[in-house]
């Protein structure tokens, strides 16, 4: 087991290296203008540009810049670990930006996960148990809606109804939980719901499908034959086997959202990681873009590892080796 984890962590490093290479390559190979020119002021002189270039390290060869970035990432720089560099645009350490933005994104993801798991699995179980009933059809109709409704549209509708018209909920923005848990919660209800909807729909369909398949297994017949109540047969024997693959998927889905809840963050002005990634890209602010991408990539590979470990823990037939 420990052997396996060590090996996987080595892989994590390899994957991260590959990610940095690809992003660097895109940034330097695709012509989009010189960042130094862009950040040297309104009417820059040659000296200004040279100065900025030296300040950003852009005067050095690409491989030196790259080497420095990789080294800083793994070892840390003058602002601490992991070293993510210095924003061209705001002239502040990227690490600070990330540290400010991360709790916002994590708050968003955490709440959404709770909602989509409960709603998705709950609806999936109900519709599997009551297969072909009106309830099942309603649930699967909901699933179709959830998958197809665009997030920005849904977000705007919610804002219009609950903020603008009814005034029940505060509008956009984010309040740290340390400041006011209630405001934190109220500000996040709508983003949570919007983000969770599509996932809840996918999870509901998956739970339904898995559970229906499981309920046809021989061991379900055995469970009934030993005199268990139908409730226990479904919720213990059926669901236990159906949830294992879902848990694995959950890890990956959560990780992808670390850098990828861009639309939800934008609609509700949450200014999380997705938001700074977006501004970084728009401003050709390589260090910021890289920083968010690295954090996102770390999340994906580490959650992938955790998901595999969880899978081995949940299914005794799986051996990690």
């Amino acid at each position: 087991m420990a052997h396996y984890i060590v090996r996987r962590l080595v892989w994590v490093a390899v994957v991260l290296l590959a990610v940095t290479l690809i992003v660097y390559a895109i940034f330097f190979l695709l012509p989009a203008g010189d960042p130094a020119v862009r950040h040297a002021g309104k009417i820059p002189s040659e000296e200004n540009i040279a100065e900025v270039r030296a300040q950003f390290g852009l005067d050095q060869p690409v491989y030196v810049q790259y080497g420095k970035f990789v080294k800083n990432f793994f070892v840390g720089d003058e602002y601490g670990w992991p070293g993510l560099g210095f924003s061209y645009e705001t002239r502040t350490p990227v690490r600070d930006k990330v540290i400010t933005a991360a709790p916002r994104t994590l708050s968003l993801i955490a709440g959404a996960v709770v909602i989509w798991l409960i709603a998705g699995v709950g609806i999936g179980v109900l519709s599997a148990v009551k297969r072909h009933s009106w309830l099942d059809r309603l649930a699967m109709g909901f699933a179709l809606f959830g998958v197809s409704a665009p997030v920005f549209w849904l977000g705007l509708i919610l804002l219009y109804v609950f903020w603008e018209k009814l005034g029940w909920l505060p509008g956009t923005g984010y309040v740290p939980i340390s400041e006011s848990p209630v405001d934190w919660f109220l500000h996040l209800i709508m983003p949570w719901s919007v983000l969770a909807l599509a996932f809840a729909a996918v999870y509901a369909r998956m739970t339904r499908g898995n559970l229906l398949e499981t309920m046809g297994e021989d061991y379900i017949r055995t469970a009934r034959a030993k005199g268990l109540s139908e409730r226990r047969v479904v919720l213990k024997h059926g669901l236990r086997a159906s949830l294992t693959p879902i848990i694995t998927l959950l890890g990956i889905d959560m990780a992808i959202l670390v850098g990828g809840a861009v639309i939800t963050e934008s609609v509700f002005n949450i200014q999380g990681l997705g938001h700074i990634a977006l501004t970084g890209v728009n401003a050709q602010d390589l260090p910021v873009t890289m920083g968010v991408i690295m954090i996102g990539a770390c999340a994906v590979v580490i959650m992938g590892l955790l998901a595999d470990i969880a899978y081995a823990y949940l299914d005794p037939r799986v051996k990690l080796a």
């Binding site: 021989d218 061991y219 017949r221 055995t222 469970a223 034959a225 236990r240 037939r317």
Partner: peptide
């Protein structure tokens, strides 16, 4: 009580 043909399929794999 009842027992079935395929004991492996008849036992829950995760318990």
């Amino acid at each position: 009580s009842m027992i079935f043909q395929d004991p492996f399929a008849g036992l829950h794999p995760l318990f």
